[in-house]
Amino acid sequence: MFGPQLDPAHIRDEDLDEAAQQGERMLAWLETAREELEQVTGAGESPSGQVRARVDANGRVLDVAYGTRALRMGSQELADETLAAVRVAGADAERQIHDLMREAMPGYDPVAARAELEGLLDGEPH
């Protein structure tokens, strides 16, 4: 998922060793980083600035706060603003997690790894 692209027909023992070492480093990091990951809190604000949200590392909404002018919005606008704030907060939490992962494993690209994993699950090589 990270590192050089491997051709399954030409995998060498060194490639397998490197993949195993990378996997071990990731598992070791996950064990030590659990507490750091649990502390990640993403924050987001709606386009109008009238809705603020916070989410945890899993994207669960921790709280939503409304400004005084939010009460004057129609129900659909308020719903849209709330969803926008939650989405921004989720993206902030994801960015923080990716930063932690990059710090722990130089050269690792969580976005590329996710795309590759999704491709493998969909049966499409990347």
Rank of each mutant, 00 (worst) to 15 (best):
residue 31 E to N: 12
residue 77 E to G: 05
residue 5 Q to S: 13
residue 121 L to K: 12
residue 49 G to D: 05
residue 54 R to W: 12
residue 120 L to F: 13
residue 14 E to C: 03
residue 118 E to C: 05
residue 40 V to D: 05
residue 88 V to W: 02
residue 38 E to A: 15
residue 41 T to G: 03
residue 5 Q to C: 06
residue 57 A to Q: 13
residue 62 L to C: 07
residue 17 D to W: 11
residue 79 A to W: 07
residue 56 D to C: 09
residue 17 D to E: 15
residue 106 P to W: 00
residue 6 L to A: 08
residue 61 V to W: 06
residue 90 G to P: 00
residue 100 L to C: 11
residue 41 T to C: 13
residue 119 G to T: 04
residue 125 P to L: 07
residue 43 A to T: 12
residue 36 E to F: 03
residue 126 H to W: 09
residue 88 V to Y: 02
residue 99 D to P: 00
residue 96 Q to A: 09
residue 125 P to A: 07
residue 122 D to G: 06
residue 84 A to Y: 00
residue 18 E to G: 00
residue 52 R to Q: 11
residue 7 D to R: 13
residue 16 L to G: 01
residue 68 T to M: 07
residue 2 F to C: 08
residue 121 L to E: 15
residue 22 Q to A: 10
residue 114 R to N: 09
residue 79 A to P: 00
residue 125 P to T: 10
residue 107 G to A: 02
residue 117 L to N: 05
residue 88 V to M: 10
residue 38 E to D: 15
residue 56 D to G: 12
residue 38 E to F: 06
residue 64 V to Y: 07
residue 20 A to S: 12
residue 3 G to D: 03
residue 97 I to C: 08
residue 101 M to N: 02
residue 96 Q to D: 04
residue 98 H to F: 05
residue 61 V to K: 06
residue 118 E to G: 08
residue 39 Q to M: 10
residue 19 A to P: 01
residue 101 M to F: 08
residue 104 A to P: 05
residue 49 G to I: 12
residue 84 A to F: 00
residue 67 G to M: 08
residue 25 R to S: 11
residue 10 H to D: 13
residue 12 R to M: 11
residue 126 H to K: 12
residue 33 A to W: 11
residue 92 D to E: 09
residue 39 Q to D: 15
residue 75 S to H: 04
residue 69 R to C: 02
residue 63 D to P: 03
residue 25 R to F: 02
residue 4 P to R: 07
residue 35 E to M: 10
residue 1 M to A: 14
residue 23 G to S: 08
residue 79 A to F: 10
residue 66 Y to N: 06
residue 85 A to W: 01
residue 38 E to M: 12
residue 125 P to C: 07
residue 118 E to V: 11
residue 91 A to W: 01
residue 102 R to A: 06
residue 99 D to W: 00
residue 109 D to A: 10
residue 20 A to C: 04
residue 82 T to M: 01
residue 82 T to A: 03
residue 18 E to Y: 01
residue 118 E to W: 01
residue 87 R to E: 15
residue 83 L to N: 10
residue 30 L to G: 08
residue 115 A to P: 06
residue 5 Q to K: 09
residue 124 E to T: 12
residue 48 S to E: 05
residue 112 A to G: 07
residue 24 E to S: 13
residue 15 D to K: 03
residue 105 M to W: 02
residue 42 G to A: 09
residue 118 E to P: 01
residue 105 M to R: 05
residue 71 L to N: 08
residue 57 A to I: 13
residue 22 Q to V: 10
residue 58 N to S: 15
residue 74 G to P: 03
residue 26 M to S: 05
residue 17 D to P: 00
residue 38 E to K: 10
residue 125 P to S: 06
residue 17 D to S: 10
residue 2 F to H: 13
residue 49 G to E: 08
residue 88 V to Q: 08
residue 48 S to W: 06
residue 62 L to H: 04
residue 87 R to T: 11
residue 95 R to V: 01
residue 58 N to V: 11
residue 65 A to S: 15
residue 67 G to H: 04
residue 93 A to D: 00
residue 116 E to S: 09
residue 19 A to E: 11
residue 111 V to T: 14
residue 76 Q to Y: 05
residue 75 S to T: 13
residue 49 G to C: 09
residue 108 Y to V: 09
residue 33 A to N: 09
